[in-house]
Design a protein around this nucleic acid. Sequence first.
DNA 1: AAAGACTGCAACCGCAACCTT
DNA 2: TAAGGTTGCGGTTGCAGTCTT
Length: 274
Amino acid sequence: MGRTPCCEKEHTNKGAWTKEEDQRLTDYIGRYGEGYWRSLPKAAGLLRCGKSCRLRWVNYLRPDLKRGDFTKEENELIINLHSLLGNKWSLIASRLPGRTDNEIKNYWNTHIKRKLISRGIDPHTHQPLKSSSAAVPAVPAVHRELAASAAHVNFQSSPPPPPEMALMSKTGCNAIAKCDSAEENNCTSSGMTSDEENQMELNLELTIGLLHSRRYNSPSKKPAQALIFNVAESKLQQVPPGVCLCCQLGFQKSDDTCRNCQNKDGFFRLDIDS
DNA sequence: AAAGACTGCAACCGCAACCTT
DNA sequence: TAAGGTTGCGGTTGCAGTCTT
């Protein structure tokens, strides 16, 4: 036996929503609020499954949604966040008010990805595209740095790493699982003071603690997300715009860990609108 | 003008994590 | 602790609109 379906499919509508359905859903949520998606369709008089209602509301009907083209600033933010987080669309969306994960995902796949490729940049690694003979996966400098700090965290007797840590590992930051010290993996060169590094470690430890306590997208996700982004943003805010992400996070041009900077005099702006 | 190709986006599906009993 | 239910995420698909020939 497979798992039980989320709804009785033979009694539900599928496909595009009608104006009447939108109105019913909007009216119901306006009156009773979000949530209880399972029972909402019946209560609202909709022949839809709860998942469909939730998706329609979150991606289309929510009043705080921003419509229209993405701005240049949003483009850059998406690219930077993607280099940090990978395909964590919901996390990325949480930093772009009025934008949904689905919208950002679509925008990435239809616009940004293509432009990055046309500029010779690998949209997965955010590194310059190489010939197929280059077998070693490129690791974004920012991932290495976050991994370097994460490497200080004691994972002994811990459950498997949470999604964010797994992401870093997937993109090449194996330091998390293997390093005894960050130095062993060329993961330092952060350019931070010891106080800053201590603060970063603290943030990561707290982050990991929170991530272990619950799934990151559960009601506790906001503090967890905030901590993750605090690490990056505290560095991002220290330098002017236009500097590549690894420089923003503290790497110097001379650091061989920062490959991006070798491309353009220390500045490697992913300005897809230019 | 018509047909086929392409593009962008809304919506669906399957899965995994979390919650409840 | 286990099992069933709920919710949210990320990948994928379908289709309407646009472009090209």
